[in-house]
Amino acid sequence: ARYHDEKKIIKDILKDKGFVVEVNTTFEDFVAIISSTKRSTTLDAGNIKLAFNSL
């Protein structure tokens, strides 16, 4: 259940930042955007990776 909650937070962060994940978006770029907000401090690193892979 935590993964789904965190995935929603991640999607909200991406929307707030106006960031669109494209086919050529690197995981490093994705993490940089997510990490640039205070909301990301509680996110699990594994869940961030899973969310990236699912987009």
Rank of each mutant, 00 (worst) to 15 (best):
D12V: 00
V21M: 03
K38Q: 09
I33L: 10
L43M: 08
R39W: 10
K11G: 10
F19C: 05
L14F: 01
K7R: 13
F27K: 03
D5L: 14
N24A: 08
K7Y: 15
D5V: 13
H4T: 12
F19T: 02
K11Q: 12
K15L: 07
T25Y: 02
A51E: 03
A51D: 02
L14R: 00
S36R: 03
F27C: 01
I13L: 07
N47S: 08
Y3L: 04
S54G: 04
S35V: 01
A45E: 13
A32W: 00
E22D: 15
K49P: 04
K49M: 08
K17T: 05
F27N: 02
H4R: 10
I9A: 05
R39Y: 10
H4L: 15
I9W: 00
A1H: 15
T26Y: 04
K15C: 05
V31K: 14
I13Y: 01
E28T: 05
R2L: 05
T37K: 05
K8M: 13
N47E: 03
K15W: 06
S36K: 07
I9L: 12
K17Y: 09
E22M: 03
R2I: 05
N24S: 10
D16G: 03
N47I: 06
S35N: 15
I10E: 00
N47D: 01
N24M: 01
A51I: 14
S36T: 11
V23E: 15
T41A: 11
N24L: 00
K8P: 05
Y3M: 06
A45K: 14
E22N: 15
A1R: 13
R39I: 12
F27Q: 00
N53D: 14
I33T: 12
G46A: 13
A51R: 00
A32K: 12
H4P: 07
Y3I: 08
L55R: 00
H4W: 12
T41F: 07
I48L: 13
N47F: 09
K8G: 09
A45G: 04
S40V: 07
T26H: 04
L14S: 04
N47H: 08
T37E: 13
Y3K: 02
F30P: 01
I48P: 04
H4F: 15
A32G: 12
L50M: 14
G46I: 08
T41V: 11
T26I: 03
E28I: 00
T41N: 15
T25S: 04
A32D: 09
K7E: 14
R39N: 09
I48K: 05
I10G: 02
S35Q: 13
D5E: 14
A51Y: 13
A1V: 08
S54A: 11
K11F: 11
R39P: 02
G46V: 10
S40W: 09
G46F: 07
L43Q: 01
T37P: 09
E22F: 03
H4I: 14
T41D: 13
D16W: 02
K49G: 04
D5P: 02
S54L: 06
S35L: 09
T42C: 12
A45W: 12
I48H: 00
V20I: 05
I13G: 00
D5R: 14
K17H: 06
I48S: 02
E22I: 04
A51F: 15
I33M: 10
L14H: 03
F19S: 13
T42L: 10
T26N: 09
V31L: 13
G46D: 14
L55W: 13
T42E: 14
F19K: 01
L14N: 05
L50K: 14
K11T: 10
N47K: 03
K17N: 07
L43E: 00
I13P: 01
K15H: 09
A51L: 09
N47V: 07
K38T: 10
D44S: 09
S36N: 15
N24E: 11
S54Y: 07
I10N: 07
I48C: 05
K38N: 12
T25A: 03
V23A: 15
I48N: 11
I33G: 02
E28A: 10
I9E: 06
D16E: 12
V23W: 13
R39G: 08
L14M: 11
K38D: 10
K11D: 15
I48A: 03
I34W: 04
A32Y: 05
I10D: 00
S35E: 13
F27A: 04
T25F: 00
G18L: 00
F27W: 09
L50R: 15
K17L: 08
I13R: 02
L50A: 14
F27E: 01
T41I: 07
Y3N: 03
T25Q: 00
V23T: 15
F30D: 06
S36Y: 07
V23G: 15
L14Y: 02
R2Q: 09
V21Q: 01
V31S: 11
N47P: 01
T26A: 10
A51G: 01
K8H: 08
I34M: 08
L43T: 03
E28Q: 07
V21F: 09
D29A: 07
N24Q: 07
F27P: 08
T37M: 08
Y3Q: 01
E28L: 01
R2C: 04
Y3E: 04
D5I: 15
I48T: 04
R39H: 12
D16H: 07
F30A: 08
T42I: 06
K38W: 07
I48M: 10
R39V: 13
S35R: 14
K11Y: 13
F30K: 10
Y3A: 00
V23L: 13
S35C: 12
V31T: 12
T25I: 02
D29R: 02
A32R: 13
A1Q: 09
I9F: 05
F19W: 07
F19V: 03
K15G: 04
V23K: 15
H4A: 11
N47Q: 05
A45L: 10
K17A: 08
A1S: 13
A1M: 13
T41M: 05
T25V: 01
T37Y: 12
D16T: 10
N24H: 07
L50Y: 14
T25W: 00
I13H: 01
R2V: 02
L14W: 01
S54W: 05
I13M: 05
T37D: 15
S54N: 10
R2E: 02
D16Q: 12
V23C: 13
S40H: 14
F27S: 10
S54E: 15
A45Q: 13
E28G: 02
F27T: 05
K7M: 15
I48E: 12
R2N: 14
T26E: 09
V31C: 14
G46Y: 11
S35Y: 08
Y3S: 02
S40N: 05
D44C: 06
I10F: 07
G18W: 02
A32E: 14
S35K: 14
V23Y: 14
A1D: 15
D5K: 15
I33F: 09
R39C: 09
A1L: 12
K49I: 07
G46L: 09
G18V: 00
V21A: 05
S35W: 01
D16K: 10
A51S: 04
T41E: 10
K15I: 07
T42G: 13
